[in-house]
Amino acid sequence: MTGTLDLTEFHDELRTVARNVLAAADRDSAPPWTRVSTSGWLGLEVDEEFDGAGAGFAETAVVLREYGRAAARGPLPAVAALAVPALGLVDPGSVRDRLLREAVAGATVPVLVLGGETLGVTPFRLDSGVEGPVLHGETSFVLDAPGADRLLVPATRSDGTVVLVDVDPGAGGVEVTDQPVLDATRSFGRVVAEGAVVAADTVHAFRDGASALRHLADRAAVAVACDSLGLAEAMLDTTVAYVGVREQFGRRIGSFQAVKHACADMLVSISVSRRLVAAAVRNVAEGAPDAAVSVSMAKSHVCAAAVDIAGKAMQLHGGMGYTWESGIHVYLKRATLNRSLFGSPTEHRRRLAQRYVSPAGVRPRACGPRRS
Rank of each mutant, 00 (worst) to 15 (best):
Arg19Ala: 14
Ala70Asn: 05
Phe50Tyr: 13
Ala205Asn: 03
Asp218Lys: 03
Val243Met: 07
Val268Pro: 03
Ala196Ser: 15
Asp97His: 02
Gly321Met: 06
Ala288Pro: 08
Ala70Phe: 07
Gly287Tyr: 02
Ala72Gly: 05
Pro75Met: 06
Glu59Cys: 06
Pro180Lys: 10
Ala148Asp: 00
Ala70Val: 10
Leu114Pro: 01
Glu102Pro: 00
Ser344His: 03
Phe124Met: 05
Val330Thr: 15
Ala61Gln: 00
Glu48Phe: 00
Gly170Trp: 08
Ser294Cys: 07
Ala220Ile: 02
Leu216Trp: 04
Val174Ala: 10
Ala335Asn: 05
Ile309Leu: 09
Asp127His: 13
Gly43Glu: 06
Leu341Tyr: 14
Arg73Lys: 11
Val36Lys: 04
Val79Asn: 08
Arg371Ile: 01
Val90Cys: 05
Pro169Val: 11
Leu135Gln: 08
Ala313Ile: 01
Val191Trp: 07
Ala61Gly: 11
Met235Tyr: 07
Glu347Ile: 06
Ala24Arg: 14
Val284Thr: 13
Ala279Asp: 13
Leu182Cys: 00
Asp265Thr: 15
Met235Lys: 07
Glu45Trp: 00
Val224Glu: 05
Ser340Met: 10
Gly343Val: 05
Ser269Arg: 15
Arg219Asn: 08
Ile253Cys: 09
Asp178Leu: 14
Gly311Ser: 12
Gly106His: 01
Pro85Val: 08
Glu347His: 02
Met297Thr: 03
Ile253Thr: 14
Gly170Arg: 12
Thr346Cys: 00
Met314Phe: 00
Arg274Glu: 14
Trp33Lys: 07
Pro77Asn: 00
Arg125Asp: 08
Leu341Pro: 01
Thr8Ile: 14
Leu231Gln: 11
Gly93Leu: 09
Ala366His: 10
Met1Ile: 09
Asp159Arg: 14
Leu99Ala: 08
Ala103Ile: 05
Ala225Gly: 09
Ala205Met: 05
Gly361Arg: 10
Gly93Lys: 04
Val163Tyr: 09
Asn20Tyr: 06
Gln257Glu: 08
Arg339Lys: 11
